[in-house]
Design a protein around this nucleic acid. Structure first.
Length: 592
RNA sequence: GCGGGCGUAACUCAGUUGGUAGAGUGCAACCUUGCCAAGGUUGAUGUCGAGGGUUCGAAUCCCUUCGCCCGCUCCA
């Protein structure tokens, strides 16, 4: 899916600017750095805070159907057993000794064939020559022709060696020897046939210990996602907040994953921040009982306002449109984004649908947010593992069911069985589920828009970055580096400059304006250097507006201009004369 | 994890066969300076990623290690 340009100077420039101007630093840099961890400097901290605030506002404060949560990073280890993370994140893995391809130890199918061993390989014709000195052991499958086998091994060797070894046909294999025959061995990679090394635990969750003794009994995990805390606290939120389905719980917080390969600057980090919403909805069956039918999604459906007869599909589409509108509100428009729908085969077994919102990063188009329709899987898992009832009592559903006859209920069960998603679901399970529904009880289904804050910050930076050719009045062309941040997310909202710093009246007036604006926004005062240089400095950190106090502000020669300043706009570099009294309302209108 | 490239000032980079580290930009102060990186003067900053070795002497050669980038792999 990603397209990666061979040399991406744009990304390098962004990384360099981030360091130089204090957006993002490598963690622990004075000790040589630590892979996959990044710090936000003064401007980065402001940027990230602004982004976090826009999400929180859009998702909680601006709506009356979503509440917030702020849970701990370390939770009861059982949370991760219930969620499936302990199992799927802690597989025993084996690696192919030829290609380093990794495979789950319990997923290796027994294979038969001849064990072939080579002492090494050489590519004398490759640029500079190339050589592999370690032995290679590969299974020649039953019925595989010896020449096609040799060709296959050369291709694998070439792939693994990268550019150094040159073309597969240039590779010479040395010391071929048949060392044995096996009937059903699990020691060879299912695809490559390469010998597998010993199984090793491979866990993507970061481990820690609770209490000072640090034994295996005290193991806990740093959360690999924030979502599970929302499910774990679902009942408490319901009991304390008078929320009614449909409603959501949003959370912003740190998560940790032991990524194999952190890469692309902050894009894949081991410590990162997520902004997640779990939006709880009725199962489609409950909607059908209440409204008689479930509204179907079609292209062009009106998604502006939720409707009571929406099922999971419309809710899923609704959140996709809401999230797209959110990105537009902070400067990421349709032309910057892309969407990737997971195919049925890619989906986890419990998921109904999942769409990723991607941003066109300089290093490739990659994920910013995933919106998944997860059914009732998570809450059901926690209900099973904790033994606590996580069903929701739906007054409206109970009322609707009380009004229908026993025959209608019987027909509904039949109908639900006919519509079941998984063929293996039994009639008994469907009946039990429906009987609960008739009492107004169900485990809510969930739509999960899950976004990466650090990825968003990187996208915003990449999207804002531009090196612009500017020609001045004298016809001199030069490069202007500018970050076109949307004013809402810009770390500094306005720069305030006295035209000259050795004129006390100008400095005093500029300080007055700083004092006026500071309670409302992040402002930056600068009096050093020529005015043009100060503008450019602010362009480079994305400050959308500049205000210059000059002699007209003091009314020295043109009394009619007294009390006005120059307002300079970053993107157009246009200047306008505005009264001081209008500055604050103007800026507030742009940044809120 | 594998292969390749790289690591010298805040940034971009130069540094010869091993001889004790530089440029441009930026930064700071002052003078000049009336709206888009202006001019001048002065100034500060490096354990040459880290550790070890060879050597009279290492940024330079060797080993180890850490980090970054690219490709492969991995990515509930």
């Amino acid at each position: 899916m990603s397209t990666t340009p061979a040399h991406d100077s744009r990304m390098e420039k962004i990384v360099s600017l981030c360091k130089r101007r204090g957006f993002i630093f490598q963690s622990s840099e004075i000790y040589g750095g630590i892979g996959g961890f990044w710090d936000y400097g003064p401007l980065g901290a402001e940027l990230k805070r602004n982004l976090r605030d826009t999400w929180w506002r859009a998702m909680t404060r601006d709506r009356d159907d979503i509440v917030g949560l702020d849970a701990t990073i370390i939770m009861h280890p059982s949370v991760w057993k219930a969620s499936g993370h302990v199992d799927t994140f802690a597989d025993m893995m084996r690696e192919c000794t030829l290609t380093n391809k990794r495979v789950r130890a319990d997923h290796v199918e027994p294979q038969g064939g001849s064990i072939m061993r080579f002492t090494g390989a050489k590519a004398p014709n490759a640029t500079g020559g190339w050589q592999l000195d370690r032995p290679i052991t590969v299974l020649m499958k039953q019925g595989e022709h010896i020449e096609s086998f040799r060709k296959r091994v050369r291709v694998l060797v070439a792939q693994n060696a990268g550019a150094a070894a040159g073309k597969p046909e240039e590779i010479e294999l040395h010391g071929e020897e048949r060392t044995g025959v096996v009937e059903a061995s699990v020691d060879f990679h299912p695809e490559t046939g390469g010998l597998l090394n010993d199984a090793r635990p491979f866990n993507l969750m970061l481990k820690t210990f609770i209490g000072p003794t640090a034994t295996e009994d005290d193991v806990a995990y740093l959360r690999p996602e924030t979502a599970q805390a929302i499910f774990a606290q679902f009942k408490n939120v319901c009991d304390s907040s008078r929320v009614k389905i449909p409603f959501g719980i949003g959370q912003i917080g740190k998560a940790f994953r032991n990524e194999v390969t952190p890469k692309n600057f902050t894009f894949r980090s081991r410590e990162f921040e997520q902004m997640e919403l779990e939006f709880f909805i009725r199962p489609d069956e409950a909607v059908r009982l209440i409204h008689g039918s479930v509204a179907a999604w079609n292209e062009g459906a009106d998604l502006s306002q939720p409707k009571p007869d929406w099922g999971w599909e419309l809710w899923h589409r609704y959140w996709l449109s809401q999230r797209t509108a959110y990105y537009a509100s902070i400067g990421l428009g349709a032309e910057d984004l892309a969407y990737a729908w997971q195919t049925k085969e890619d989906l986890a077994h419990y998921a109904r649908a999942c769409v990723d919102i991607l941003y066109k990063f300089p290093f490739g188009t990659d994920e910013l947010e995933g919106i998944a329709a997860r059914g009732s899987f998570d809450l059901t898992q926690h209900q099973t593992h904790s033994g606590k009832q996580l069903e929701y009592f739906d007054e409206e559903l109970k009322t609707a069911c009380d009004a229908i006859t026993a025959e209608q209920k019987e027909a509904f069960i039949e109908q639900s069985h006919a519509r079941r998603l998984h063929p293996e679901t039994t009639k008994e399970e469907i009946t039990a589920f429906c009987e609960k529904l008739f009492k107004g009880l169900y485990v809510p289904h969930v739509i999960e828009p899950s976004a990466g804050l650090d990825r968003l910050a990187l996208a915003i930076l990449a999207n804002a970055f531009e090196e612009e050719e500017v020609t001045d009045e004298k016809g001199k062309t030069e490069t202007r580096t500018v970050l076109h941040f949307h004013p809402r997310v810009a770390p500094v909202k306005v720069g305030i400059f006295p035209l000259l710093k050795n004129k006390p009246e100008l400095v005093a007036k500029a300080r007055e304006i700083v004092a006026m604006l500071r309670p409302h926004m992040n402002v930056f005062y600068d009096e050093t250097g020529a005015i043009g240089r100060r503008y450019r400095r602010q362009d480079e950190v994305g400050t959308p507006y500049g205000i210059t106090v000059d002699f007209d502000t003091l009314g020295e020669e043109k009394p009619e201009l007294k009390g006005t300043v120059t307002l300079r706009e970053r993107d157009s570099m246009q200047q306008t004369r505005v009264p001081i009294a209008e500055i604050l309302p103007f800026l507030l209108g742009k940044i809120l």
